[in-house]
């Protein structure tokens, strides 16, 4: 694997290998000195053309825990605002000596283009509503830690599927690892054409609520879509929110995941967010571990310590 751009088409062997490495790095970051020299001398550039706090921090944390150096780019301080092309911007950073780029961008396909222009290994840190493969890896790791494996798990992804790169990534990772996935959303938030997606769909959360081992809640993304996609936030909460009442009707061992940031009171009630069966903070920690695994594999790191 030269770059990690999408979860679509990534085979089970590759996923298992990344998750196995992530398990090892999970152990590393819980050591008293959470750092290994595996990528010493390598430079990871985080090219975030879309504002992000947690994903960028997570990648930088992962790079540093592997002893890589980091170069950090953010659009607020860049010449992009002055009209420079994306190509010129990434070639400039490459010329400073980056060995790998992590690219986040508001547009679909940005990471592909960067990989093509630079020839560097590229990790897609989220491109528009398209893909966010390391999120799918950390979600898969969280499920695997909890259940032992994803084989046979029934997982619901609830919310704004249409504008979600998380859903577009998770669908492929979860099903490749053996889970069954159901997408649950109002019709305005489902993709218009699901041909070829290995999923079931529902527009009625309550009807299918008790069938799942894990419920994956998506954030209601007011900044995407733009146009009004449902009549009111209150109505969304009533039909699709993980309210305390709905949470009490889940199977007792069902867990809840969320990519963050959570909007308490809309897609998730505070009582659910703070319940031990809500794995949000585990997901965040696992994010560092899977990103270490990805950087390690793409940069051909050594295990000698």
């Amino acid at each position: 694997m030269k770059s990690l751009l999408t979860m679509e088409g990534v085979d089970r062997t590759t996923l298992d290998s990344l998750l196995d490495d992530a398990d090892e790095f999970f152990e590393v970051i819980h050591r008293p000195i959470p750092k290994v020299p595996a990528l010493r001398g390598k430079t990871v550039a985080t090219m975030f053309f879309e504002p992000s706090t947690r994903t960028k921090l997570s990648f930088e944390r992962a790079a540093k825990a592997l002893s890589a150096d980091t170069l950090s780019f953010s659009p607020g301080t860049s010449s992009l605002k002055k009209g420079e092309s994306l190509k010129d911007t990434v070639l400039t950073v490459q010329a400073m000596g980056a060995d790998l780029m992590v690219v986040r961008h508001t547009s679909t396909g940005a990471a592909w283009r960067v990989a093509e222009w630079t020839g560097l290994p590229v990790v897609n840190g989220g491109d528009g509503a398209h893909q966010h493969p390391t999120q799918a890896l950390l979600d898969s790791l969280t499920l695997r830690q909890h259940f032992g494996a994803l084989d046979g798990l029934r997982i619901a992804i609830v919310g704004d599927i249409r504008h979600s790169r998380v859903a577009r990534s998770d669908v492929w990772a979860f099903t490749t690892l053996g889970a069954e996935v159901t997408l649950i959303a109002p019709p305005t938030l489902l993709p218009t054409d699901l041909s070829g997606w290995p999923v079931a769909t529902s527009t009625d959360l309550d009807e299918v609520l008790s069938e799942f081992d894990a419920i994956y809640l998506l954030r209601v993304q007011a900044e995407r879509g733009g146009a009004s996609v449902f009549p009111s936030v209150a109505e969304y909460r009533q039909r699709f929110g993980m309210t305390d009442a709905r949470f009490s009707r889940l199977k007792p061992d069902t867990i809840v995941l969320h990519p963050g940031p959570m909007i308490r009171g809309i897609e998730i009630d505070a009582g659910v967010a703070d319940d031990p069966r809500c794995k949000v903070l585990e997901q965040v920690t696992n994010g560092v571990a899977v990103r270490m695994a990805v950087l390690f594999q793409l940069l051909g790191g050594t295990r000698d310590e």
């Binding site: 679509e8 398209h130 249409r162 993709p191 218009t192 054409d193 041909s195 733009g226 146009a227």
Partner: peptide, 19 residues
């Protein structure tokens, strides 16, 4: 066509772009 980037259909849905 608001925000539309590509033909609405299987490929726009897969790419996550407005159709």
């Amino acid at each position: 066509a608001a925000g539309g980037q590509v033909h609405e259909g299987e490929i726009s849905s897969r790419l996550g772009m407005a159709g």
